[in-house]
Design a protein around this nucleic acid. Structure first.
Lengths: 223, 223
DNA sequence: AACCGCTTGTGAACGCAGGAACAAAGTCGC
DNA sequence: GCGACTTTGTTCCTGCGTTCACAAGCGGTT
């Protein structure tokens, strides 16, 4: 078996990107794609794409390419997208509200089955078609809905406490937007998304590339 | 010279995390920290932290640790945080509005000097203390403010066009939240943040770890 | 003044990801 | 039916990131 041993995490992340491109192509009525075209649309190297796809067994036809619909379904299966994933979201400030209303989740099989906030002012409000609940109901909802994914969009100060409550309620995967490193028990996966870190990396690269950024186009011959 | 040759991108990302922890420690009145404690707070390996710090020259005292304030300032200098960075944000839907109102940027030297949206309904509205402008003014604002960073929070369909406009206006670093791979001219750095990809990686890890996730709590002690 | 413990900084080995080149295989044209 | 072209799948190799382990240096103590 080639598909079970282990798929590198970097490959999994790219598979999600390929899946999006393939879905788009399938909606456009496209029948087959070559690795070159698919790689171009995904922004990766063609050889790397083929290597990624090789992790899930041969799924292309030599001399022709990949069947769009078949490959899409195959990747979807590997990523576990055939079954919907129940998620709970904690913290409905600006970012949390944006996440609750983001359409990109629902269309990919992720459904927010519970929105929670500690602030009484937010509890009861409707965000993204769902009512915000108080933190007291978190454990109950997680247990009842079998939610396996928790999203933390709270201030940094309370993120660890929220993480503890989520894990003790049975959540096994956490996506954390709060700017703190979370400690979770073994068996729980935590992924960190830090927006300001991304900006700081950009600022560093900009500083390193050219200190004379403002003088970059002295005699601009730009069209 | 040790600081100029090159600092790995992964290290830069972690430096930003260290910086946050150090700022927090400094606010708490802490004088010195050991690599072990700092690594623990940042969620990384102590040896890796020391190696990261070694890229900016010796900055600790053996037998004692690192001087919090000194190290903080040093990292801030390397990351280019002594000077404020002007950013423009395009797309003020749910996510864009959240970004505009996110306090984590301003406190780290990133200022949104322009918010832009193509929708007339959003133009003129105030988000995060700033007025949303029409796309026509993008080039003018970028030129006038010398903005070097552009943030794209638009739908995927128009992201590439927005990217083209930003780069032609002089933006050299782009943070893209739209789920598409952007093509930018050489010399322009593009960083991709894809929220649904993060969720899909979590879902995959969850599926791989334990297929019996729903049967994990056979005798549920529901509250 | 010398010793001891603690912590940094560095050197080396391991593992992994990325890229390029090559062989296998299937299809289209003749 | 046969040959050539196209494209996949694989293999090798190079480079990077990460980790472990050790030597060097500083403070506190006796």
């Amino acid at each position: 078996m080639q598909s079970r041993p282990r798929i590198p995490e970097a490959t999994v992340a790219r598979l999600a990107v390929y899946l999006r491109v393939l879905s788009s192509l399938a909606d456009g009525g496209r029948g087959t794609v070559s690795s070159g075209e698919l790689a171009s649309a995904a922004g990766v190297n063609p050889a790397g794409l083929r290597k990624d796809l090789s992790h899930l067994g041969p799924c292309g036809t030599r001399g022709v390419g990949y069947e769009v619909a078949t490959l899409r379904d195959r990747i979807a299966g590997v990523l576990g997208m055939e079954t919907a994933h129940a998620c709970v979201l904690v913290g409905l400030g600006n970012l949390g509200s944006a996440l609750a209303g983001y359409g990109g989740f629902g269309s990919r099989g992720f459904e927010f089955v519970g929105l929670f906030d500690a602030s009484p002012a937010r509890v009861g409000q409707e965000v993204g078609g769902r009512v915000v609940r108080p933190m007291e109901e978190l454990d109950e909802v997680v247990t009842a809905t079998r939610a396996t994914i928790g999203v933390i969009a709270t201030p940094a100060e309370v993120a660890q406490r929220v993480c503890d409550r989520l894990t003790s309620a049975g959540v096994r995967s956490i996506l954390n937007f709060a700017p703190v490193a979370l400690t979770a028990p073994a068996g729980v996966d935590v992924r960190q998304v830090d927006l300001s870190v991304e900006l700081q990396v950009l600022a560093f690269l900009d500083k390193q590339r050219g200190p004379a950024a403002t003088v970059l186009t002295p005699a601009g011959g730009m069209a």
